[in-house]
Amino acid sequence: MITIRPIPAFNDNYIWHLQAGNEHWVVDPGDAAPVKKALEGAKLSGILLTHHHFDHTGGVASLVKEFDCPVFGPGTIDGVTHPLADGDQFTLLQRDCEVFAVPGHTLDHIALALHASDGIHLFCGDTLFAAGCGRLFEGTPAQMHESLTKLASLPEDTKVYCAHEYTLANLQFASAAEPGNGDITARLESDRATRDRDQPTLPSSIGLELATNPFLRTGSPEIRAQAAAHGTTPDASAVEIFATLRHWKDNF
């Protein structure tokens, strides 16, 4: 059995800690100190990276120095010992792990889908967020839309492990983008209560994102209408609607 726990870091990052027996892996360790504390003296077996931003990689050198462990991730990142690319598969914690290239937030961004007995666990870094998506620092709207579409095609019970606790802010935007969506209203109420208990709103699921994430709902008539009010044409493509939503969210 695999146990997956969030390790809080910085203001709103989550470093995901995967454990099966005596094996311990972490995803996107931007800071080494909370990882070492969470291990409680255990040895780190390996590191998984989704992209090169420092808040996801800043702890790698210190962890490798102490634990001499392998680093799996995009080949663009210094210190990666096992470069990963779209379509790659490897064994992680004695389970199959699949790699998806998901450019948009960065050009080198990947997502990792771990196939376990209880379903798929998706580690998507800053591409897909709970009720949102990452900013386009390097890629284009078309690239990010395609990346999100790829992830949204996974089974609806796929668990989604994002790298930041942005859920409430994203749901507030989602409420503006699709104010008639009752699923968004219910999710915002539920997740506010979760945060009031100082608990993470993650993992999410693909099914929940399909119901409440405006960036996955560009075909919604209400979202199309809201996008038109922010600059798109009535016959705008899904990519154009996505681009308008992303620009609106950047300034929300």
Rank of each mutant, 00 (worst) to 15 (best):
I4Y: 00
I4M: 11
R5A: 14
P8A: 03
A9I: 02
A9L: 04
F10E: 09
N11H: 14
Y14C: 06
W16G: 00
H17V: 04
L18C: 01
Q19S: 15
A20M: 13
N22A: 15
E23S: 12
E23A: 12
H24V: 02
A33Y: 04
V35Y: 06
E40D: 11
K43V: 12
L44S: 01
G46Y: 02
H51F: 01
F54K: 14
D55H: 13
D55M: 06
H56V: 11
H56E: 10
T57K: 02
G58F: 00
S62K: 04
L63V: 14
V64G: 06
E66S: 14
E66Y: 03
P70F: 10
V71C: 10
G73I: 04
G75F: 05
I77T: 09
D78S: 15
V80T: 14
T81H: 10
T81W: 12
H82M: 07
L84A: 00
G87E: 00
T91L: 03
L92V: 01
R95S: 03
C97D: 02
A101D: 02
A101M: 03
V102S: 04
G104M: 02
T106G: 10
L107T: 13
H109K: 06
A111G: 06
A116W: 05
D118F: 05
I120Y: 07
I120L: 00
H121P: 07
H121R: 12
L122E: 02
L122H: 08
F123P: 01
G125D: 05
L128W: 09
F129L: 09
A130S: 10
A131F: 00
C133I: 09
G134Q: 03
G134V: 15
F137L: 15
P141Y: 10
S147A: 11
S147R: 01
T149C: 12
A152P: 06
L154E: 03
L154H: 05
L154S: 00
E156K: 13
T158Q: 08
K159R: 14
K159P: 08
T167V: 11
L168W: 00
L168P: 08
A169T: 15
N170E: 09
A174T: 04
E178H: 12
E178G: 05
E178M: 10
P179C: 00
G180V: 07
G182R: 08
I184L: 01
A186Y: 09
A186P: 08
R187L: 07
L188S: 01
L188V: 08
E189Q: 15
T194W: 11
D196I: 10
D196E: 15
D198A: 15
Q199L: 15
T201N: 11
L202N: 02
I206G: 02
G207C: 13
G207H: 12
G207V: 13
L210R: 15
T212V: 07
F215T: 12
F215M: 10
L216G: 04
L216K: 04
R217K: 11
T218I: 07
G219D: 07
E222W: 01
A227C: 06
A228F: 07
G231V: 12
T233P: 10
D235Y: 10
A236M: 12
E240M: 07
A243M: 05
T244P: 01
L245I: 11
H247L: 12
K249S: 07
D250K: 15
N251I: 08
N251L: 03
